[in-house]
């Protein structure tokens, strides 16, 4: 749904974020491409580069094989062309077909979910700012009623952005907050309703059921809501990221990933596995600490940053 917004912003932010993180690292991959002959050790290094970017062992092997096949079938000999082939294979792997467009009505409801500390509340604020820049209004729902200070945090963002934040007392029912906020969004004719939720580990059955209830309540109040369920993944997350995506997807149907905290040395390679298994695309990348630091995900920039990684 954010496709049309995507063109407006370049992926420069990821690039800059990643550039920050490259300080102090040698680019192992560069070594491969400086030579004219490709050896087995080089393929192994490519595999390791992917592993060190949290792609995961199985997928790293698979992607390296795919790149090898491509190089073979295209009869590629020179290193530059190989780099190009590798990029293509990796970018392809992040492509998801049939991403649906949002409905015409409003408000468009975005439910933001994720494990503890992944960066949900900050993402909600950044997303609201991003939409504001597009001339769209949002209502924010403080449905994280569990973490101490979460409501305050969202309200502070709301004041800074001059947006309405619907909240209740700490410890109240998140579904009730979501319902109130949905009503407020309809009444004020807001373009978007963004619902912040409490962090929860995907293994916690009770909290996952609570989230299902939030989803149900939203659907009951606004037709076909939520229109987007964004799972915020910490860019530093390792292989558990797949388990997170799998469980959240099974419970509340994730429509997109927000890869947060990509400005550190994080590579976020686990999204390859997520995309492959669940066919859920990465939609946004969090690239820094200020409110502007959220950009539509750019697979090319992401892959380039990953390829330049390696410890």
């Amino acid at each position: 749904m954010f496709k049309r917004l995507k063109r407006r912003r370049s992926g420069r932010d990821i690039e800059q974020g990643a550039a920050k993180s490259r300080r102090g690292f040698g680019s192992r991959l560069a070594g491969i491409f400086e030579r004219s002959r490709i050896t087995d050790a080089d393929w192994e290094e490519l595999e390791e580069t992917l592993i060190s970017g949290d792609v995961g062992l199985d997928l790293a092997i698979e992607l390296t094989e795919a790149i090898r096949d491509r190089v073979k079938s295209d009869g590629i000999k020179d290193p530059d062309a190989l780099l190009g082939a590798a990029r293509e294979v990796l970018i392809d792997a992040l492509r998801v077909n049939g991403v649906s467009e949002p409905p015409a009505g409003k408000p468009i409801v975005i439910l933001v979910v994720g494990v503890n500390g992944s960066g949900k509340t900050t993402t909600v604020a950044k997303l609201a700012h991003f939409l504001q820049e597009m001339g769209k209004t949002s209502v924010l729902a403080a449905a994280d009623t569990f973490r101490a200070g979460a409501i305050d945090q969202l309200e502070i963002w709301g004041r800074r952005l001059d947006l309405r934040v619907v909240a209740q007392a700490p410890g109240s029912d998140p579904a009730a907050v979501a319902f109130d906020a949905a009503s407020a969004a309809v009444a004020t004719k807001a373009d978007y309703l963004i619902v912040d939720t409490a962090g929860r580990l995907q293994t916690n059955r009770n909290l996952m059921n609570e989230l299902r209830k939030v989803r149900r309540v939203l659907a009951g109040r606004i037709e076909s809501a939520p229109h987007e369920v964004l799972l915020v993944l910490d860019g530093l997350t390792g292989q558990n990221g797949l388990a997170q995506a799998r469980e959240f997807h099974a419970d509340v149907g994730v429509s997109g990933i927000v890869l947060a905290k990509l400005d550190s040395s994080a590579k976020g390679g686990v999204v390859f596995a997520v995309t492959k298994e669940l066919e859920v695309p990465v939609k946004f990348a969090g690239t820094g600490e200020s409110i502007e630091d959220l950009a539509p995900f750019d697979a090319e920039e992401f892959v380039d940053a990953l390829m330049r990684s390696g410890n």
């Binding site: 949290d54 494990v115 995907q202 293994t203 994080a266 390679g269």
Partner: peptide, 29 residues
């Protein structure tokens, strides 16, 4: 839940403010 970069991050912190201990959080998942 941290992935491969955990080492880089911790080593850099250790360099700036010598660490004396680790707390491993969110182990209930």
């Amino acid at each position: 839940m941290t992935g491969q970069e955990a080492v880089t991050v911790a080593a850099e912190f250790d360099k700036r403010v010598p660490l004396t201990g680790l707390v491993l959080a969110k182990l209930d998942g």
